[in-house]
Simulated assay, not measured.
Amino acid sequence: MEYPDELFDLNNEYNPSTSTFTPKHNGVYLIIASLGFFANVPTSYSVRIFIAINGTLRVADNDFLGEELAIVNLVSASSILQLSAGDAVQVFAQATTDGTTVPEPLENTVHFMNFEAARFPSPW
Rank of each mutant, 00 (worst) to 15 (best):
E2Q: 09
Y3Q: 06
P4M: 10
P4F: 06
D5T: 05
D5M: 04
D5L: 13
E6C: 12
E6L: 13
E6S: 14
D9G: 07
D9F: 13
N11K: 05
N12I: 15
Y14V: 11
Y14M: 09
N15R: 05
P16R: 03
T18N: 04
S19A: 06
S19G: 10
T20I: 14
F21A: 01
F21C: 00
F21N: 02
T22V: 14
K24C: 01
H25Y: 04
N26L: 03
G27H: 08
V28T: 08
Y29T: 01
L30M: 09
I31R: 01
I31A: 01
I31K: 01
I32T: 09
A33Y: 12
S34M: 07
L35H: 14
F38A: 07
A39Q: 01
V41S: 10
Y45D: 04
S46A: 12
I49N: 04
I49C: 02
F50N: 04
I51F: 08
A52T: 15
I53Y: 02
N54A: 14
N54T: 12
N54W: 13
G55W: 07
T56I: 09
T56A: 10
T56N: 08
L57W: 08
V59F: 03
V59C: 05
A60R: 05
D61K: 09
D61T: 09
N62A: 11
N62W: 12
D63F: 06
F64N: 07
L65N: 12
G66R: 09
G66M: 04
E68V: 09
E68T: 12
L69G: 03
A70G: 07
I71C: 13
V72I: 04
L74W: 11
L74I: 05
V75M: 00
S78A: 01
S79H: 08
S79A: 02
I80D: 02
L81F: 03
Q82T: 12
L83I: 12
S84W: 02
A85T: 10
D87A: 02
D87C: 08
V89Q: 09
Q90Y: 00
Q90V: 14
V91A: 02
V91L: 03
F92W: 11
A93V: 14
A93T: 15
Q94N: 11
Q94P: 00
Q94I: 15
A95V: 12
G99H: 06
G99I: 06
T100F: 06
V102A: 07
E104R: 11
P105L: 03
L106R: 14
L106V: 11
T109A: 15
H111E: 09
F112N: 07
M113W: 03
M113T: 14
F115G: 00
F115W: 07
E116T: 08
A118Y: 13
F120G: 06
F120E: 11
P121Q: 09
S122D: 05
P123R: 08
